[in-house]
Amino acid sequence: MTSPEHLLADEVTVGYGRQVVLDGVTVRVGRDETVGLRGPSGCGKSTLVRVLALLHRPDHGQVSIDGTPVHGVRYAVPVDLRTRVAVLFQSPRAAADPRLSLDDLIAEPLRAVRTPEATVRERVAELADLVGLTADLRGRRPHAVSDGQLQRACLARALVHRPDYLLCDEATAMLDASTQAHVAAVIRDYQRTQRAGVLVITHDQTLLDHWSDRIVDLAGAARART
C-alpha cells in the first residue's frame, strides 16, 4: 500500500483572538480531482486556503501532503514541500509585487530556488504562452496591465513549479467573463495533464457545478456544528 495521494487538513481549528473561524474542519483534496469549496461569507474559506497553503499555523489540527505531516508554516516548511502547493489569490493586484514586470513575476519562484537563467527564460515563455500573455504584455509592470492580464500572470506564476496541488481562492471573481472562462480552462487542463489536485472557492454556483468533481460545504465540514 503506497501513501495516500492527497492534501489533507485534518481537524483544523483556527481562531483570531476569541473569534473561532474554523472549528475542527477536515477537508481532503485528492490528486486528480477538483474540489469545490462552498460556504457563506466569513465562514473561513480563505483562512482554510491559507492553512492548506502552509501560510497560517492552525491552533489545532494538522496539514499533511501525501501522508507526510507538515510541521511549521511559512519559512519553516522545506522548500520542496512548500512548492508542491500553490495558491492563486483573489486579488492579483495585492498578490503581485508592483515593482516586477510580468516576466519577472512569473520567473521569481524559479529564481528563488536558483534555477539556471536559460531554463527560467524557457519556462516563463512556455507558461506565458499557456495563459495567453503576449510578448508586449510580458515586459510591463502590474500598474500597466488590467486585472485579467495580471491574474493570468499570477496563474502562470502559480504553475511555474508544477505544483501537485493548486488552491484557487475566488481567483476568477474579479475577472470578466471571457478571461474567467480562459483561466478556468487553463486550470482544468493543468489538473488533467498533471494529475493535480485543485481546490476551488467561488461564489459562482454555475462555475462551481461545472468545474468541480465534488463540492464540500464548509459549514458541513465542521466537526461539532449542528
Binding site: 497553503a53 501560510l55 512548500r82 495558491v87 486579488s91 495585492a94 519562484p109 528563488a112
Partner: peptide, 14 residues
C-alpha cells in the same frame, strides 16, 4: 501583503 505570501509559497527564503 499577499505578494509576500505568494513569494514564500513559491519557495523564497527570508
Amino acid at each position: 501583503r499577499p505578494f509576500v505570501d505568494a513569494a514564500i509559497s513559491g519557495g523564497a527564503g527570508r
